[in-house]
């Protein structure tokens, strides 16, 4: 079943009077249970696209359908893990995880059960009473993931959640995230710069291109899980993606960019 459809999304930003076309007709279909990684050059509009799916930005034209229904506002059915975590420093870890549940009016006891489940899953049970400044960057990122999962969203949106991490922590979270994905059967859209990351995590990698900003190609990664970052069998997928992105650069040069 198609979980999410993006149809012809166009979005421009105004830079001191000059319009910048951030998205120029983006189309994407995401199936239920897909783990889609979005890769593409910096500034090609990946974050903008994710924000539009989240309802945090409005497209100039085009539409987003969730389960076939049009959406244009933020909603707890599409929770986001922001690049910097975006945790609330005035709340304890457990209250961060429960924030959305509280907004939704879920009673305290039920909230505690839910937050406990996800804090346990993220191996953070010992830190539930800590404040966020007392955590390492990797721990913060795990809290952000727990917070997003606690809402039991239809789709989990992740914007370069691991960019600020060292490679060991990142490799650990690769495995954890794959396990969570398998356990929860969530649909995930994951933005990254890192091609190796995209082939480790994604069931599908969507390649974004620049000028015009569109999704150019989708590559299915049909390889067993959990995948490890160092697995050499993933290299061929990486090469295919790199080749696509190279063509993109060459095309741009030809068109005099």
């Amino acid at each position: 079943m198609t979980k999410l459809q993006a149809r012809n999304i166009v979005k421009h930003f105004d830079h001191n009077g000059t319009p910048i076309l951030a998205l120029d007709g983006v189309n994407l279909d995401v199936e239920e249970g897909d783990f889609v990684c979005l890769v593409g050059p910096s500034g090609c509009g990946k974050s903008t696209f994710l924000n539009i799916i989240a309802g945090l930005e409005k497209p100039d034209s085009g539409e987003i359908l969730l389960n076939g229904k049009l959406i244009d506002t933020p909603g707890p059915d599409r929770t986001m893990v922001f690049q910097e975590g975006a945790l609330f420093p005035w709340l304890k870890v457990v209250d961060n995880v429960e924030f959305g549940l509280k907004i939704a009016g879920i009673p305290k006891e039920e909230r505690r059960q839910i937050s406990k489940r996800y804090l346990d899953m993220m191996q953070l049970e010992k830190f539930s009473e800590s404040y966020t400044y007392q955590l390492s960057t990797g721990m913060k990122q795990r809290v952000a993931i727990a917070r997003a999962l606690a809402m039991d969203p239809e789709i989990l949106l992740m914007d370069e959640p691991f960019a600020a991490l060292d490679s060991q922590t990142r490799d650990l979270l690769f495995v954890e995230l794959q396990l969570i994905w398998e356990r929860t059967k969530k649909t995930i859209i994951f933005v990254t710069h890192n091609i190796a990351e995209s082939v480790v995590l994604g069931s599908k990698v969507a390649i974004f291109k620049h000028r015009p900003s569109r999704i150019k190609k989708e590559i299915v990664i049909d390889y067993r899980r959990p995948r490890l970052a160092e697995d050499e069998n993933l290299l061929k997928y990486q090469h295919a993606i790199i080749q696509e992105l190279k063509n993109e650069v060459i095309e741009q040069k030809k068109s005099g960019d």
């Binding site: 933020p74 922001f82 924030f99 907004i103």
Partner: peptide, 15 residues
């Protein structure tokens, strides 16, 4: 206030 904090709040259903 960092805009991402506000975005995070809206994202989790606060308005």
């Amino acid at each position: 206030v960092p805009p991402t904090l506000v975005a995070a709040g809206r994202n989790m259903g606060a308005n």
